[in-house]
Write a protein that binds this DNA or RNA. Structure first.
Length: 887
RNA sequence: GCCGGGAUGGCGGAACUGGCAGACGCACCAGACUCAAAAUCUGGCGGUGGCAACACCGUGAGGGUUCGAGUCCCUCUCCCGGCACCA
C-alpha cells in the first residue's frame, strides 16, 4: 500500500544526481509550493467568495455534503467533489457567478455509532473531524465559499431543521401515529423503509434483520405528494437511472377502486385493481390476514381457524426473517435472504362470508391470505384466477372457479413463442389459447374480452384498454367504484429513538396530547447526556434527561418533551436552502436570495441516494412550497415550482485495481498520500481522466504518473519553452484548426460531464502545440483555460507567472471562443473503400465535390487493381468521409 | 420474474445522427542522452501469415438488415444496479 510513496514522483526535479539537482529544482514543477502559495493567496483575496446579493448571473453548483467521518475524506468524496468543482469552475470561466458551497452532515446514527465504538461523545468527535475535513477540502482546491458553510449539529442549523418540522406540522404534513415500523435492534431505533435493504436487513448493519414493531412515531406525509413526486420525474433533467430508481420506488399504478358488497351484511369491501376489465372473471376475494373487516364479517365458527392462520403467517414471517440470518452467520458472508416459499404454494383460509361481484351479481367466497398485503392498496383484492398468476396459483390450490374473460391475442401468443425460444413441448399458440379458454392456463397478456356482459354493460370483443375504460365508466355511474391510482410509496417515518439528532419540537400535555413548540422557543437544544446509548427499550436516550424533559406549555401548564430525535435525512433534506443564508440568525433563508439562486442549477452526487436523500429532499421542498414558506425563482423549464434541482447528475463509482474499495480489503485510497506524492492538481486531473465521470472508473497507482508527467511537460513548456510566440494568424493552419477544434470539443464535453475525453483532447492539442515551430498567445491561453478547472492551482501559476497576467485566472480568465470556420482543415484525408474495405487513403480539398471524389477514387491504383477491367457497379460517396467503390 | 446499464488491445478507456475501430493515457519494446541507472526525449505497439508490398481475422456468442454495423433489429451468455406475492 505504501509502496508508491517511497517512489519518487517522476520529474520532481530532485533527481539523485548531485550536480543536476540544484539547477533543476529551481525550475521544475513543485506542486506543494505552488498549491500552498495560491491557496493562501486566494483565501486572502477571497477569490472563491461570491456576493450573493450583487451577483449578476447566478449559477448554483451543489454537491452532496459529506458526513465527516473520523477516517477523513475518502477518495470517493474527492472524486465526486472534483467532478462538481470542475463543472463550477468551468462555468465561472464562462462568465457565470458560481456559488459552490459545502457543509457537514454530522448528525445521525453514523456519527453516533462510531462514537459508541470508540467510547467517546459525538460532540467531542465532530469538531475534530470537521477540522480535518476542512483541511482536506481546502487542500484539494475546491472553489468553496467557506463563509456559507453549515454544520447540521450546530444549534444555529438545527434550530431551523426544527422549524422545518413545525412548518410541515402546521400544514398537516407531519403527524404522529402508531404503526408497524422497521426497528433495527442493532441501532436500537426505528428506521425508514428506504433504509431497509432488499434482504430485509438494516442499511447500517447488513447482517442484522430488521424487526417489525408497532410503535408511536412521527411521520411525514410523503404520500400526499406521491403524484407530483412521480409526475415531475418525467420532465426533470436528471440522470435517467436516478429517475428510474425513484419511479420504481414511488410505484404508481393506475386502475380502479371497486367496492364489493358483503352478502347479507351492511358492509363493503373496497379493492384496488389495475385490471378492472377482468371484473367479470372475479370468482373470489382475498383480504390481508390483518384486514380490519375480517373480524366483522367472518363466520363465528371460522374465528378459530382464522386466528390460527394469522399466527401461522406471523410465525412464517418471523422464520423468513431469521432463517437467512443464521445462514449469514454460518457462512460468514452476506448472502441474500432465502426466498419466500415458492409463489405458487399459496396458503389461506376461507372466512365464511360471501361477497357479491358487482358485475355478475354472483356470490363469491372470501379468503384471507398472506399474498395480500395490508399496506398496499386497500388491503383487499378481487381475484381473477384466469388472468393473474397469483390468483391462479391460489385458485388451483383451493379448487376455485377459474373463469376466462379474455381471449388471448394470437399475435401476442406467437410473440410469446418467439421470445421464449423453442418450446419444450408442443405448446403451439393454438394450444395455449385453448388452455386459457379452458381455465388450465393463466393469461395476463393482451386479448379481447369474452364472457363479460350483464344487462347494462358489455365488454365483449373489446381490447384490454377499452374494456378498462368502459367498465370503469359503468362502475362510476353505478357508484360502485371509480378510476384510482395507488402508489407503493409510503409515509416517511422520521422518529429515531436515538440521541445524536435534532429533538422533535413537540411537547405533550398531561393527557398526552402533542403540542408544537412555539417557533420563538427554538432551538430545543440537545441536553448534555453522559450516557447517550440507546437502552433498547424503544425509548430514546433523551427519556433519561429528566430535567430536560420537564417543560411547560405556553399557558403555563406542565408538559413533557418528545424524546425522539429526527431522522438524519431531514438534516440533509434542506441544507441547500440554508447555504444561501448560512449565518442568518433571524430566519432559515433569505426569501430574496432564494428567489435569486434557487432552484439549484446543477446537483452532482452518488446514485446510492436516488431514493433516500433525493426523494426526501424533493418532498421537503414541495411541502415547504405548498405550506407557503418557500418560493423559489421562476425557471421556464421547471414545470412545478416546488422542485429543488434543475439538473441532477449521478457520477459513477470509483474502484481500485478493478475491485471495490473497502476497509476490510485494505485498498482504500486516501487522498492525502497522493496529494503528498503528486499534488492535488495531479490527483484531480487523474481522477477526472481515469474514466467517464458519469460511469466511474478504476484507480491505478501506475496511471496517476501519466497525469503527473503531463503536468510536468506543460510546466516545462510554459516556463522553459523556447518557441517563438507569434501572432496567431502566422501559425500554420493545422495547429490553428486543432486549437479551435479543441475549444469546441472541450466546451461540449464539459457540458456533458465527459471529462476524460475533454482531457484527452487537451492532451492532443498540447502534443501538437509542443511539436510546432512557433506558438501564439491564443494557443497558450486556450490550453490553460481549457485545462484550468482540472488543475486550478497549476493554471493560476501558469496564468500569473508564465503568461504574466496581473489578475487571477479565476477572476480575469474567460473560456476561449472558437470560430466554426477555423475548425475545418483545408485539406482532409478520406478513405477509399473497395466493397466496403478500406484499400487506400487520399488527401482532398475539404470541399471536393462528389464527382471529384469519385474520380479520385477511381484513379486510385489500389482500386484499379481490385477492379481489374470491370466497371464499378456502384459508387457511394460520403463527402468528408469516404468513397466506397462496389465492383 | 420485471425494469435499467454494461461487455472493445496486455490494462484504463475513445469512436458525431451507421462511414477509416483502438483517440488519449498506462504498461511494454527499440533508439538517443549517460561511465551507468533513473528521469527526459524520439520511434514502435490488436492478432495471424509474410523479408516486404500486402493479405486475412478482429468490438461477449450466434443470426439478420445494409454498399458499409462497435453503433440498428432478433436470440443467447455473463457482469453491475433498481424493484419484486404491489393486486
Amino acid at each position: 500500500m505504501a509502496g508508491f510513496i517511497n517512489q519518487r514522483a517522476p520529474g520532481t526535479g530532485l533527481c539523485n544526481h548531485p550536480k543536476a539537482g540544484v539547477f533543476m529544482a529551481e525550475r521544475a514543477y513543485d506542486p506543494a509550493a505552488v498549491e500552498k502559495k495560491w491557496q493562501q493567496h486566494w483565501e486572502k483575496q477571497g477569490i472563491n467568495d461570491v456576493d450573493l446579493h450583487a451577483a449578476k448571473d447566478p449559477y448554483y453548483v451543489l454537491m452532496m455534503f459529506p458526513y465527516p467521518s473520523a477516517e477523513g475524506l475518502h477518495v470517493g468524496n474527492v472524486y465526486a467533489f472534483t467532478g462538481a468543482d470542475v463543472h463550477g469552475r468551468h462555468h465561472r470561466l464562462r462568465g457565470r457567478d458560481v456559488f459552490e458551497p459545502i457543509g457537514f452532515d454530522a448528525f445521525g446514527i453514523h456519527s453516533e455509532n462510531f462514537a459508541m465504538k470508540v467510547n467517546r461523545h459525538p460532540k467531542e468527535l465532530v469538531p475534530a473531524n470537521v477540522a480535518n475535513f476542512t483541511r482536506q477540502l481546502k487542500m484539494m482546491g475546491f472553489m468553496f465559499d467557506w463563509r456559507h458553510s453549515v454544520d447540521t449539529t450546530s444549534p444555529d442549523y438545527y434550530k431551523w431543521t426544527q422549524w422545518v418540522f413545525l412548518q410541515l406540522y402546521k400544514a398537516g404534513f407531519a403527524y404522529r401515529d402508531v404503526k408497524e415500523v422497521n426497528f433495527c435492534p442493532e441501532c436500537g431505533t426505528v428506521i425508514a423503509d428506504e433504509q431497509v435493504l432488499p434482504e430485509g436487513t438494516c442499511e447500517r448493519h447488513p447482517e442484522t434483520l430488521v424487526q417489525r414493531r408497532k410503535m408511536p412515531c412521527w411521520f411525514f406525509r410523503t404520500t400526499a405528494f406521491a403524484d407530483r413526486l412521480e409526475r415531475n420525474l418525467h420532465w426533470l433533467d436528471w440522470s435517467e437511472k436516478t429517475k428510474l430508481a425513484q419511479l420504481n420506488w414511488i410505484g404508481r399504478s393506475i386502475g380502479a377502486e371497486i367496492r364489493f358488497a358483503v352478502a347479507g351484511k351492511d358492509e363493503q369491501i373496497p379493492v384496488f385493481t389495475t385490471r378492472p376489465d377482468t371484473l367479470f372473471g372475479a370468482t373470489y376475494m382475498v383480504l390481508a390476514p390483518d384486514h380490519p373487516l375480517v373480524d366483522r364479517i367472518a363466520a363465528p365458527e371460522k374465528k378459530e381457524e382464522i386466528t390460527r392462520y394469522r399466527e401461522e403467517v406471523e410465525r412464517r414471517r418471523e422464520a423468513e426473517r431469521q432463517g437467512p440470518a443464521e445462514d449469514v452467520i454460518s457462512k460468514g458472508a452476506r448472502e441474500p435472504a432465502a426466498e419466500r416459499p415458492p409463489a405458487d404454494e399459496k396458503t389461506g383460509v376461507e372466512i365464511g362470508a360471501r361477497a357479491v361481484n358487482p358485475a355478475t351479481g354472483e356470490e363469491i367466497p372470501i379468503f384471507i391470505s398472506d399474498y395480500v398485503l395490508m399496506e398496499y392498496g386497500t388491503g383487499a383484492i378481487m381475484a381473477v384466477p384466469a388472468h393473474d398468476d397469483r390468483d391462479f396459483a391460489f385458485a388451483k390450490r383451493f379448487g376455485l372457479t377459474i373463469r376466462p374473460v379474455f381471449n388471448p391475442d394470437v399475435k401476442a401468443v406467437e410473440e410469446l413463442q418467439l421470445t421464449q425460444g423453442p418450446q419444450k413441448d408442443d405448446m403451439t399458440p393454438q394450444r395455449i389459447r385453448q388452455s386459457v379458454l379452458e381455465g388450465d392456463l393463466c393469461w395476463t397478456g393482451p386479448g379481447t374480452a369474452i364472457n363479460s356482459a350483464n344487462e347494462e354493460v358489455s365488454l365483449n370483443d373489446l381490447p384490454v384498454e377499452e374494456a378498462k375504460e368502459r367498465i370503469t365508466r359503468w362502475l362510476t355511474g353505478k357508484k360502485l367504484g371509480k378510476a384510482e391510482t395507488t402508489f407503493r410509496l409510503r409515509d416517511w417515518g422520521i422518529s429515531r429513538q436515538r440521541y445524536w439528532g435534532p429533538p422533535v419540537p413537540i411537547v405533550y400535555d398531561e393527557d398526552g396530547n402533542p403540542h408544537p413548540v412555539p417557533e420563538d422557543q427554538l432551538p430545543i437544544t440537545l441536553p448534555d447526556l453522559e450516557d447517550f446509548r440507546p437502552k433498547g427499550d424503544g425509548r430514546g436516550p433523551l427519556a433519561s434527561a429528566t430535567e430536560w424533559l420537564k417543560t411547560t406549555l405556553p399557558d403555563g401548564q406542565p408538559a413533557t418533551r418528545e424524546t425522539d430525535v429526527m431522522d438524519n435525512f431531514l438534516d440533509s433534506a434542506w441544507y441547500y436552502l440554508r447555504y444561501v443564508s448560512a449565518n442568518d440568525p433571524e430566519r432559515p433563508y433569505d426569501p430574496e436570495l432564494i428567489r435569486k439562486w434557487l432552484p439549484v442549477d446543477m446537483y452532482i452526487g452518488g446514485n446510492e441516494h436516488a431514493v433516500l436523500h433525493l426523494l426526501y429532499t424533493r418532498f421537503i421542498c414541495l411541502a415547504l412550497t405548498e405550506a407557503g414558506v418557500l418560493e423559489m425563482g421562476e425557471r421556464p423549464e421547471m414545470k412545478d415550482r416546488g422542485e429543488p434541482f434543475r439538473k441532477f447528475r449521478a457520477h459513477g463509482l470509483i474502484v481500485k485495481d478493478g475491485a471495490k474499495m473497502s476497509k476490510s480489503k485494505g485498498n482504500v485510497v486516501i487522498p492525502d498520500e497522493y496529494v503528498d506524492a503528486y499534488g492535488a492538481d495531479t490527483l484531480r486531473l487523474y481522477l477526472m481522466f481515469l474514466g467517464p465521470y458519469l460511469q466511474g472508473g478504476d484507480f491505478r497507482d501506475k496511471d496517476i504518473q501519466g497525469a503527473r508527467r503531463f503536468v510536468n511537460r506543460l510546466h516545462a513548456w510554459f516556463f522553459e519553452g523556447n518557441q517563438p510566440v507569434v501572432p496567431d494568424e502566422e501559425l500554420p493552419r493545422p495547429l490553428r484548426v486543432k486549437t479551435h477544434q479543441t475549444i469546441r470539443k472541450v466546451r461540449n464535453d464539459m457540458d456533458n460531464l465527459a471529462y476524460n475525453t475533454a482531457i484527452a483532447a487537451i492532451m492532443e492539442l498540447f502534443n501538437e502545440a509542443r511539436a510546432a515551430e512557433a506558438t501564439s498567445d491564443f494557443v497558450r491561453e486556450s490550453l490553460i483555460l481549457c485545462l484550468a478547472p482540472f488543475v486550478p492551482y497549476f493554471a493560476e501559476e501558469v496564468w500569473r507567472e508564465a503568461l504574466g497576467k496581473p489578475e487571477s485566472i479565476w477572476t480575469s480568465g474567460r473560456f476561449p471562443e472558437y470560430r466554426e470556420e477555423m475548425t475545418v482543415e483545408d485539406e482532409i484525408e478520406i478513405a477509399i473503400q473497395f466493397n466496403g474495405k478500406v484499400r487506400d487513403r487520399v488527401t482532398v480539398p475539404k470541399d471536393a465535390s462528389r464527382e471529384d471524389l469519385e474520380q479520385v477514387a477511381l484513379g486510385s491504383e489500389k482500386i484499379r487493381k481490385n477492379l481489374g477491367d470491370r466497371d464499378p457497379r456502384k459508387i457511394i460517396v460520403v463527402p468528408g468521409r469516404l468513397v466506397n467503390v462496389i465492383g
